[in-house]
Computed example of a mutant assay.
Amino acid sequence: MSSRTQEGRGPLYRLYINRLLRQIPPAQVPRHVAMMIDGNRRWARQLGYDSAAHGHRAGAAKMREFLRWCDDVGVSVASLYLLSVDNLRKRDSGELTDLIEIIGQLADDLSHERDWRVQPVGRLDLLPDELQRVLRDVAYRTAAHTGMHVNLAIGYGGRGEIVDAVRSIITQHDERGGTLEELAASLTPEQIAEHLYTGGQPDPDLVIRTSGEQRLSDFLLWQSAHSEFYFVEALGPDLREVDFLRAIRDFASRDRRFGG
């Protein structure tokens, strides 16, 4: 276990947690937080594990914690970037098999956690049949839940999502007998947003990424146009509640200037 994972067990740590919570006005908590957990493989390598699967399992366990932190401070929507389309194409086949199994278990676990509604988003048709089945079951089982909305981005790519949204709009317009000229004249950003995988949800107010990386990696490209970003040096499995609360406190202190 890394030194960072061992931190935060004593009373002084809990006092600091409570102090951070007092510094966050409830009205300034972001409605939608998106998380890009990164560094699972580096974490496993640094600890001497012979397989990246150890890091991915630790990262999945951390995501369960992260979602509880979000729920506890009043976040309404949380989105996790778990598997990109690029991952499906480029990852080693053995690592990908392990990762897909871990993601399926995580999704199932989250469907039994509190009253969360769990929604997979992405090109699920690209996934193995068994994972598709698990994700469909999870979505069905939690569809009526009224707690925090949890998006699991799996087989996801932001550019592909925008393409799929435009295709959906074109198909819908064609079924109604409209012309291309009418579509071109009527197309709006709001219309595209409605046809995204996250249609009807608020855009992310805050995007967090671990491991010190500072890039979007094709995650929620459309939705994050006005998001605030917060980058954490900790590797994914080493993320602590204080890191999360500092991100929320930082967000609450920012003067958001949309379009400026």
Rank of each mutant, 00 (worst) to 15 (best):
Q191C: 04
L135Y: 10
L99K: 09
A234I: 07
E7I: 05
V77N: 05
R22E: 11
E228K: 08
W69G: 00
D164A: 14
W222P: 08
G157D: 15
R254W: 05
Q105L: 05
A153D: 12
G200P: 09
Q172K: 10
L245R: 06
L88R: 12
C70R: 00
Q23L: 14
D92L: 01
M1K: 03
L20N: 02
H145K: 14
L245Y: 02
V75M: 09
N87E: 10
A225W: 03
G10Y: 05
G48K: 05
D38L: 08
Y197H: 13
G236N: 14
N18D: 04
L124G: 05
V163K: 05
S217Q: 03
L135C: 10
F66A: 15
Q132G: 06
R14P: 01
L126P: 01
K90G: 01
D92H: 03
E213W: 02
G260R: 09
L196K: 04
L245C: 11
Q191M: 12
V138K: 07
R22A: 12
Y230H: 14
T171K: 08
Q119R: 15
E113A: 15
C70L: 05
I192Y: 06
T146M: 13
T198H: 11
E233R: 11
R9S: 02
Q191K: 03
V118C: 08
S253E: 11
G259P: 01
R89E: 12
R9T: 02
W116H: 15
Y156R: 11
E182P: 05
Q23N: 09
G122R: 12
R176G: 09
Y140K: 11
